[in-house]
Amino acid sequence: MSSQENSESLPEAQATAHGAVETAGDPFADPGLPAHKPRIQDIDERAAKRSERAVAFLFFLSMVATVGFIASYVIFPVDKIVFIFPFGHVSVLNFALGLTLGVALFCIGAGAVHWARTLMSDVEMPAERHEIAAPPEVKAQVLADFKQGAAESGFGRRKLIRNTMFGALALVPLSGVMLLRDLGTLPEDKLRHTMWSKGKALINMNTNEPLRPEDLTVGSLTFAKPEGLEETAEDFQTQIAKAALMLVRIKPEDIKDKRELEWSHQGIVAYSKICTHVGCPISLYEQQTHHVLCPCHQSTFDLSDGARVIFGPAGHALPQLRIGVNDEGYLEALGDFEEPVGPAFWERG
């Protein structure tokens, strides 16, 4: 092995060669590699036979488990659920396949490791290390070769070639960058508008019916979407990501914010459901305090006070939607949100 190449191995005096660091030496001399202690299998053939049988048994068990895997695949229906203590209700197929596959694999591993530990030689032996850095003459040769190669190319001398090549190489990736342009549309003012507009009725998210003021009781939380937005619509997800609305009814005298009261209808206030932090839908409502909490990052807003942030990482209040009642007595929007909904961004202002 490598022991024949002693000349290349790490020099003894490496520590002092650089002189950059000082370290204290070892106070006690290295006693050298301890003698090998034989294992029971090394001296007792019967013990070695026992180990051999153990390894063979593990490999055999693996074969049995693989047969079990195939059998389970054939026997158990994919939709059968059973109760297995302490795992609860599990898919019997998944359970059987996983266990048999696990045993089949594990036994191969256990057999191999047991074989290595008990029957293969465990005599520790040293191998020399070699310094990673090349010896000085190799380095000198490489540098000379490089200089010769560079000189033959004329790279340093013919500056016109060099500079135009750099120019060409610098420009050519621009084509690739251009090709990325159509990855998406430009933001323009898309983030400033939602589907809400004057006269759009508020549709109950659960019943798909337009909402009347009397449907909402004090202390309840209702989610709404704009009239005309159907779940089957192609852009439903994108539209609802901005237009999702939550309605709560607060006693008008409990509303602290003046504008909020003006934009409400008989104490019914409509706020964007999309958190102004990073856009999670807000869904936890505390009826006594009229606080809503975002379950993702715990931003808390006070719906009785302009939905201002009272705790958590959100940076500004939830946008409010101005609502009223149309001629037929249904709740309707009196316009779009006046500010962008959802997370803040550079152009938001």
Binding site: V90, N94, G98, L99, G102, L105, G109, A112, V113, A116
Partner: peptide, 25 residues
Amino acid sequence: PVYMAKAGGFFFLVFGVIAVVAAIA
């Protein structure tokens, strides 16, 4: 042969344990 067997075997140990975990959890 030692690390062929130990390291090679260890692959099966890791795979086996993960398969059992996937079966029960």
